[in-house]
Every structure is written in structure tokens, then in C-alpha cells.
Nucleic acid binder design. Structure first.
Lengths: 117, 117
DNA sequence: AATAAACTTAGCCATTTGGCAAAGTATGTC
DNA sequence: GACATACTTTGCCAAATGGCTAAGTTTATT
């Protein structure tokens, strides 16, 4: 399928892996070097590095090198596209409920009061 | 990594594909048969069927067969684990800001008023 | 200068994913 | 009963994913 929303693809994909969510959870508490991100996952560094780059490409994390250690920090605004999608979804859903409501009201008008039990 | 949260894995993975999001968007407007779900994606039925099963396993969609047509509907509460995760993430983040705030207040106390420019 | 630390790159491997065509099944319609 | 509909199953394929080891590279430390 044509990718009309690369943001959401990358974002949801980044969040679909538990190791990456674990790394993010650590970063939500504050910046950390790569090896500290790796610790709770039990994964090797090369693997963690690749997860990290997925998080970066999704716009969830930024990193910079300080001497020989790479410091990583979370970008909380990276979650916005997801919030927006969720909101849009909710609106469609509510629009649907509104139309159902209209419909029911329309039906009710057909029934005079005295036909109700 | 041990999968401590199969819900979130399946949910985020389900949402990471644009065809699946397209199908969901259609379903948010109301129930539909498989072929109607397929139409906007431009994909063949077998492919759509597999996307559909991914959505079902993620708890986002329920289907049932009515004669020879399978009717699909969205389960909006299927998005709850995602909302919860988002909320938890926000709380960690805010807890962090609170601690930063505490810290700054602590620093400020050290400085008498008349040292400020 | 030698060693240790902290990544980084390269390359391999098994599994999963996302797509398809072809053939099969079940259910309406004429 | 013949035929069309609407899936459904099977099986194939290429690319992406997630993991690893081994071998760099770039900074500290001693």
C-alpha cells in the first residue's frame, strides 16, 4: 500500500517491540547512555543500537555523542502523531454514534406517545 | 525479549501498517463485509484476510459470518491498552518534571533574593 | 605507550511479514 | 442443477526484522 503516513508507520512500528518500549520507559525518567539502555533488556549492544536507531527514526529519541559515550534522551512530542490519530479515530466513532442518535430520534417521532408500553 | 505485554505488541504492530489502518478507518464508520474493507486498499482478498486476522488478534475487530458474507466490526475498546500506555508514559514524564521542579526550587533557596540580577 | 571502556560496523542467520495466484468451499440466484 | 458470489485455504516468494559474534574505532586511564 502507498505509505501516506510514514510518521505513523514508523511510530507504531517502533512501539510494537517490548525491548524498545523498555528502553523508552527508561528514557522517560531521564537521559541515559546506550549501555544503560541496554541493561534492562538483556540484549547485546549491536542489537540495542539498532533498536535505538528505530526509535530515533520514529522521532521518539534523540542522541548525541559526548566523548566516547552516546547520550540518549526521549522526545515526548514524538508521541503526538499517535495522540492525533487516536483523537481522529475517536471523532469518527463519535460521529457515528451521533448519526445513530439522530436515527433513533427520527424513529421515535413516528411513534405517538400512547403506543409506548 | 520476554513478552510481558502481548497486548501492546499485537496492538502496536496491528496499527503499524497503513492498509490495516485504512481498514480500521472504514470500520470506525460502521460494520462492513470483507470485500468492502478490501476496496480502498487495492489489495487482493487473501492479503486483506490476513490483515483482518491481525486486527482481530489485536482485539481491534470482531467478525462473524452471515450466510456467505463475513461481517466485520470495530471494537473501539481495543484501543484502551494503547491509551493506558500513553497515560502511563505521560505520568512518568510528569513525575520527572515534578522532580526537576523540586530540584530547581531547592537550588533557588540557596540564593538570597538580592543576588538576582 | 598500553589497556580498558564504550560504542560501531560488518556480516550471518532464522523467523516474520506482506504480497500474490490458483484452487477450494459454501451459499445465494435463476 | 447450473452458475455466480464471497470468501477461504494453500503454497510460494522477496524483503524486513530481531538476534548474534567478531572485528573495528574512538576516547579515557594508568
Amino acid at each position: 500500500m502507498a505509505k501516506h503516513d510514514p510518521d505513523l508507520n514508523l511510530l507504531f512500528h517502533a512501539l510494537s517491540d517490548p525491548s524498545r518500549r523498555m528502553m523508552l520507559a527508561r528514557l522517560a525518567r531521564g537521559p541515559a547512555p546506550v549501555s544503560e539502555l541496554a541493561a534492562p533488556t538483556g540484549l547485546r549492544l549491536p542489537t540495542v543500537l539498532r533498536h535505538l536507531s528505530v526509535l530515533e527514526e520514529a522521532g521518539l529519541v534523540a542522541t548525541q555523542k559526548d566523548g566516547r559515550v552516546r547520550s540518549c534522551q526521549m522526545l515526548p512530542e514524538g508521541l503526538s502523531p499517535m495522540r492525533d490519530w487516536l483523537e481522529a479515530q475517536r471523532e469518527i466513532w463519535e460521529g457515528r454514534l451521533d448519526r445513530l442518535d439522530d436515527y433513533l430520534n427520527e424513529i421515535m417521532k413516528e411513534w405517538p406517545d400512547d403506543t409506548r408500553s
